[in-house]
């Protein structure tokens, strides 16, 4: 069945990559296994954001909040209650989706820029609560050393858990985008007035997209807890939200897998550049400016092959002259 919905070529590439990643922990050092797991978590987060931004055309400026809510709810259940572990894994994403629904309900009435500003405002409220409520959330220190269930606590087993959940989520996201709902969403992005005219309920579609995206952000949040074993208020901070935005931009807004590539590039750069200099954000800023000016379509959106062909054609034409 999957063969029918995936384009043949990229399906082969994905399966090959998946098998490579399956055997990777046996070969590469432990630290790289951890970095790969962080990349997977971040990639899922960026993918979920891209569902509403790239494919939905909404100004989802504060997506990090839902990631943080998922992580906090899941982490607090694991750390502070004696409920079984799977409750945290279900409650985290659901809490994120409920938060997404409530905030979305407010924001969806407004258009573009106001939508984004209102979302930042409401998201900051949640950030302040996480930042200040020392008794529950540990305030600005957060909570560290959250007890992770035995079978996924080692770096290898958490790697496999994150990898498998990421793959399931990617398949789900792909199916959602290829479904009639996904097509309607992209049509709304391109022309909301016309969609409304042909009888698509624009607001309801957008709200549904937000709820789906925030659910997956919550999944990423609980996976973050599994990988890092800690929660802290920076997860809900707006700087993180804009960083995810950069990942989507870097990979390519209008491509399916772009955000994964963006997340991989940004996380690995942060890890390896961060060991040489403390001025990582300066480098990130310069990268962002270069992207805005020279590669606004993103790495995957940019058609290198076509550019190369037209360039070589021009070169051939000029050599004939």
């Amino acid at each position: 069945m999957l063969l029918n919905i995936f384009p043949q070529k990229s399906f082969g590439v994905s399966v090959g990559l998946f098998i490579l990643l399956l055997i990777a922990p046996a070969i590469i050092p432990k630290f790289y296994t951890y970095i790969l797991a962080v990349i997977f978590v971040t990639a899922l987060l960026a993918m979920s954001l891209n569902l509403v931004v790239g494919h939905g055309g909404l100004f989802q400026f504060h997506h990090g909040v839902f990631y943080g809510v998922g992580a906090y709810v899941g982490g607090l259940i694991l750390a502070k209650t004696s409920l079984p572990w799977w409750v945290a894994f279900i409650a985290g994403p659901i809490a994120a989706a409920v938060t997404g629904f409530l905030i979305g309900l407010f924001c969806i009435r407004l258009n573009r820029l106001y939508f984004g500003m209102l979302q930042i405002s409401l998201g900051s409220l949640l950030w302040v609560i996480a930042f200040r409520w020392y008794d529950l959330t540990g305030g600005d220190d957060g909570i560290h050393g959250i007890p992770i269930p035995e079978f996924i606590s080692s770096s290898k087993s958490s790697y496999y858990l994150v990898l498998i959940i990421l793959c399931i989520c990617l398949i789900l996201l792909y199916l959602i985008l290829k479904s009639p709902f996904g097509s309607a969403l992209q049509a709304i992005r391109d022309n909301p007035e016309r969609c409304a005219a042909v009888g698509i309920n624009v607001r309801r579609h957008q709200l549904a997209a937000i709820v789906i995206a925030t659910f997956f952000a919550g999944v990423a949040g609980i996976l973050f807890v599994v990988v890092e074993g800690s929660i802290f208020p920076e997860l809900l901070f707006w700087v993180l939200s804009l960083e995810i935005f950069i990942m989507c931009l870097l990979g390519g807004w209008f491509t399916f897998a772009g955000p994964i590539l963006g997340a991989a590039v940004i996380v690995s750069l942060r890890t390896f550049v961060g060991t040489y200099t403390e001025y990582w954000t300066l480098i990130l800023g310069v990268i962002l400016i270069l992207l805005i000016f020279f590669l606004p379509e993103g790495l995957m959106g940019y058609n290198f092959l076509a550019k190369f062909r037209s360039w070589s054609k021009r070169a051939a034409a000029s050599s004939v002259d």
Partner: peptide
């Protein structure tokens, strides 16, 4: 000033880049 013709998201992201750079500088 070279970005005014572009979509607003790019302008916003530019100011974010400026924030990152100015903060470290």
């Amino acid at each position: 000033c070279h970005l005014y013709e572009r979509e607003h998201l790019m302008l916003l992201l530019f100011t974010f880049a400026l924030m990152l750079i100015l903060g470290d500088l």
